[in-house]
Computed example of a mutant assay.
Amino acid sequence: MSDHSMNVRDARAHLSELITKAQNGDPTILTRNGTPAAAIVPIEDFEALEDAMDAYLARQADQEEDEGGPAVGMAEMVAEIFDESRGNAA
């Protein structure tokens, strides 16, 4: 999977091409003022992320129920998901 980026203005002009690239497994990072802002990704990747987040939330809920611990914030949850997906789990 290659890492391509494009600013939002150019992406508007090439949206159809970017969607085709995503369908072929090639995501594009959209930037605004040089900062990554969003991504056009294959639907399979998006669905896998949703499934992973659902599984993580279910696991967290079960663990919190068992331990009586505090709820985890969204930012902490997303950071942990990405760490796990990169093999950096604590």
Rank of each mutant, 00 (worst) to 15 (best):
N88D: 03
G87M: 00
A38K: 01
G25N: 04
L15R: 05
D54A: 13
A75F: 06
F46W: 10
H14W: 00
D51P: 08
Y56P: 09
A39N: 03
V78E: 05
S2D: 11
A11M: 01
T31S: 02
N7K: 08
A37W: 04
A90M: 01
D83N: 12
E64P: 02
I43L: 12
G25I: 02
N24Y: 03
Y56I: 09
G68T: 02
Y56M: 15
I19H: 05
R59M: 09
E76V: 06
T20I: 07
A71R: 14
E76P: 06
T35P: 08
A39P: 06
E84Q: 10
R9T: 11
E47A: 14
M53G: 10
G34N: 00
S2T: 12
E65W: 00
Q60K: 13
D10T: 09
D45Q: 15
N7T: 07
V8Y: 04
L15S: 07
R86V: 02
D26K: 11
E76G: 11
A75S: 11
E47C: 13
P42N: 14
I40M: 05
E50I: 15
I19K: 08
R32D: 05
H4D: 11
E44N: 12
S16I: 10
H4K: 12
E67P: 06
V41N: 00
A52D: 07
L15W: 03
I19M: 02
I40D: 07
G69F: 00
A11H: 00
K21M: 08
H4Y: 06
A61T: 09
G25W: 04
E64S: 11
Q23P: 03
I43F: 11
E47P: 12
M1T: 15
L18N: 00
A11K: 03
D3T: 11
M53S: 14
D51L: 15
G87S: 01
E17S: 08
E76A: 15
D26L: 10
D62H: 13
D62W: 03
D83R: 15
A37F: 07
T31E: 04
E67I: 00
S16G: 09
A13G: 11
I43W: 08
G68V: 05
T35Y: 03
D54P: 02
L49G: 12
M1G: 14
D62G: 13
P27N: 05
V8E: 08
G87I: 04
L18F: 04
D66Y: 00
